[in-house]
C-alpha cells in the first residue's frame, strides 16, 4: 500500500529500535554469563542497521529510489577482548584463578538503551503525525 508508505517507514524504525532494545536486554541479562552454546563466555551482541531503499519508479518524484525506512542487516558479535577477572572460586576459572567474563559494559548498555528509547519515541511521534495528516485529508469534500 503506497499511501501508507509513511506509516510503514515509521514502523520499520519502531521494529529497528525494538530489535536494538532486544539485543541490549540480552547483553545486560548475560553480563556475567561464562558459558554459552558455542563454548566460552557470552559476547556482546550488536544489531547492524542499514537504510532500506526501494528501487521502484516513483511517479511523483521521477526518481527510481523511494525511501523505505530502515532495516536490520544482521546481529554481529562484538569482537573486542573479553574481560579477565580474578575469581578462583568460579568453576570456570583457569589454573591461575582467572575467569573470562563477557565484554559487556553495563554503563554503555544503559546509554544505548536510552538512545533506543528516545529513537523509539521519535518514531511513534512521526507515525502519529502521519496518521493525523491522513485523517485530515479525509476531511476533503466533507460537508
Amino acid at each position: 500500500m503506497r499511501i501508507f508508505d509513511t506509516i510503514r517507514i515509521s514502523a520499520t524504525g519502531l521494529t529497528a529500535e525494538r530489535l536494538r532494545m532486544d539485543t541490549i536486554s540480552s547483553n545486560i541479562a548475560n553480563a556475567t554469563t561464562t558459558r554459552t552454546e558455542d563454548g566460552g563466555p557470552y559476547r556482546r551482541k550488536v544489531a547492524v542497521f542499514k537504510e532500506d531503499l526501494k528501487t521502484q519508479l516513483d511517479r511523483q518524484t521521477g526518481s527510481s529510489v523511494r525511501p523505505g525506512g530502515v532495516k536490520a542487516v544482521e546481529i554481529v558479535e562484538d569482537e573486542s577482548p573479553l574481560r579477565r577477572v580474578y575469581d578462583p572460586s568460579n568453576p570456570d576459572a583457569d589454573e591461575q584463578g582467572y575467569v573470562l567474563m563477557p565484554n559487556v559494559n553495563i554503563l554503555n548498555e544503559m546509554v544505548d538503551m536510552i538512545v533506543a528509547t528516545r529513537a523509539y519515541e521519535a518514531n511513534v511521534t512521526a507515525m502519529n503525525a502521519s496518521k493525523s495528516m491522513m485523517l485530515k485529508a479525509l476531511e476533503i469534500g466533507r460537508r
Binding site: D5, T6, I7, I9, S10, T12, G13, A16, E17, R20, F49, K50, E51, Q60, T61, P67, G68, G69, V70, V115, A116, A119, A122, N123, T125, A126, M127, A129, S130, M133
Partner: peptide, 15 residues
C-alpha cells in the same frame, strides 16, 4: 512527500 522524508530520517536516526 516531505512527511515521507522526515519519517525516513527519524527511522534512520541511528543508522
Amino acid at each position: 512527500l516531505r512527511q515521507k522524508a522526515i519519517s525516513n530520517n527519524v527511522a534512520n536516526i541511528n543508522t
